[in-house]
Amino acid sequence: MSTAAPALPDRRAPVARWWAGVRKVPVVVWVFLLLPVAVEAFWVFWPAANSFSLSMTRWNGVGAAEPVGVKNYTDLLADPIFQTAVKNNVIWVVGFGGLSVLVGLAMAVLLNRPGRGIGLYRAAIYLPMVFSLTVTGMFWRVLYSPDGPVNASLGLLGLQSWQRQWLADPDVALYAVLVAAVWRQVGYIMVLYLAGLKGVDPSLEEAAAVDGANRWQRFAQIVFPQLRGVNAVVFAVTVIDSLRTFDIVWAMTRGGPYNSTQLLSTYMFEQGFTLVNLGYGSAIAVVIFLLAIAFIITYLVRSARTED
């Protein structure tokens, strides 16, 4: 309904012009807009803002919160479990992101062109994506159980020395959970890259093939540079997802054994809800937010470009 604006220059003050713009929109349309905005403001933006102020207090949920300034943040810096969580989150971003992009992109390139069996291969690879992270975690708990198929397969291959209690061993538990998360993520990354590959100009690759470029050269120098847009999205999505990751760790290890699989999100939940240190938990939540914000903005800028 965006009717063409009158051609006359508007000489009124900005506020008056703004108000005129507001009045031009029918009241019922304002109701249409403000109802959802109010719901989101009340259940998302208002709580988010509250986390910032709560992070400056000590509070166990009973009585009044005691203001402590930035003490929660200075405590965090000295908290060894927090340090473990940060380190694990870095491992998670790199390992989870790197592995799922590597496998997802490889599968997208291999399964891009139609052919016999391609539909089946694709369906098999993105099927895990529809399971919840909780279900994925439960599936892999069965697989990792001491007498489960992972250890049994290693035994069959003669790798008895590799067998272990995957989720109870602090040295490997994080990676065991990571493998399960990657298994579920690959399908999603593949879908994103398959869509990106559709936008790749095939004539360029043909020309390169005629000139004698081999498959790898064609991919690295012709196809991959054209995937820049998808790469940016995958990168932002991966980092945002990594900082949110909670369900699968909680379902498989709850951050244990000995906090070896603690991520920022699980440590925040433990502090905020299990131990009811509401101020301290909020401070961890704020840290997660600050780490995510740059990537959220990247994603928003890209989205704004499509909408403008």
Binding site: V37, E40, V44, A48, L54, I240, S265, M268, A292, E307
Partner: peptide, 25 residues
């Protein structure tokens, strides 16, 4: 456009930043 992007931003927030206040509310 600003309203739209702010609304989208709300969905991109890490849920952790909402949890404690949401429980209280």
């Amino acid at each position: 456009l600003v309203i739209l992007l702010v609304m989208l931003a709300g969905n991109l927030l890490p849920p952790q930043i909402l949890l404690i206040p949401v429980a209280k509310i």
